[in-house]
Design a protein around this nucleic acid. Structure first.
Lengths: 147, 147
DNA sequence: TATTGTTATACTCTATAACTATA
DNA sequence: TATAGTTATAGAGTATAACAATA
């Protein structure tokens, strides 16, 4: 904030406008893609597991910012679909090691690539400049949301 | 898509990356702000009603892209908190007219302004350039999600 | 005693289908 | 018969609290 109490830049209430944006886009994405093979949370977890290598449920829960019981259910759904495997940790039998299967990698790739027909179409319809803005913002926001 | 089948710009799979972004940011926002006076959906509906003037439940449901029963519940929660009023339509007694109350406008302003302490802080910590990117992207994405 | 993961339970948000009142 | 809104019901996703197994 500046001395005057106004946000330093980006116009007033950037945080509020980002929140409105994310709520609306999230619902729009969900409603347009309700019947995807993988839900948004499944894709997100699978993506993290693929990106950061084998993880324990605890680690994945921290990564996805959900509580352990939530992760237990998410893991069960992914394992049930054959997208991940659960092995017992070789040195600590309390822990599990989660790995993405080949089917999981494939499902993830397909989901990420084909997700949101409308979103891809909408993005393709944007002027080049707007698309570049969104691309850059995705990087910024992922850093912001991840840290 | 270009002739080669690649996305026209913004690198590969921009839509997929936008989806991952929105899922993660949404959850982050929800988890960081679980105990806000107004939930994300309440803020979004109140904002639409404030922005687009008195609306019927049906109109607001279309605007917010939810089904009528979902809107019924949302309306009940907002009315219960004194943030909106429900009047019967003067010419068609099946319909209602929803209006934001003064308390609703105030709650909305406060929510938007003070929402997401962490988000505002994070945004303030960004380099000026990144913040400008996010600001521009919010406009683009709101157009994209709204249409 | 501390930690990992699970079970039990509940709350929010969403949907579809069936209903009521009005047009 | 058609439309606006509601009620009934269900499913996904999330949480906290209590538990079992292991360290």
């Amino acid at each position: 904030m500046s001395i005057s109490g106004e946000p330093v830049s980006g116009g007033p209430d950037l945080a509020g406008r980002v929140r409105l944006m994310v709520v609306r886009l999230y619902r729009r994405v969900q409603s347009e893609h309700a019947r995807s093979a993988l839900s948004g949370v499944q894709i997100s977890a699978l993506d993290s597991l693929s990106r950061f290598g084998p993880l324990t449920p605890r680690e994945l829960a921290v990564c996805e910012r959900v509580q352990p019981p939530t992760m237990t259910k998410l893991i069960a759904s992914l394992e049930c679909d054959g997208l991940i495997t659960r092995e017992t940790h070789p040195k600590d039998r309390r822990q599990l090691i989660l790995r993405v299967t080949a089917a999981g990698e494939q499902a993830l790739a397909i989901a990420v690539r084909t997700t949101e027909e409308w979103l891809g179409k909408r993005l393709a319809e944007l002027p080049e400049e707007d698309r570049a803005t969104v691309t850059a913002a995705v990087e910024v926001i992922n850093k912001l949301a991840g840290g």
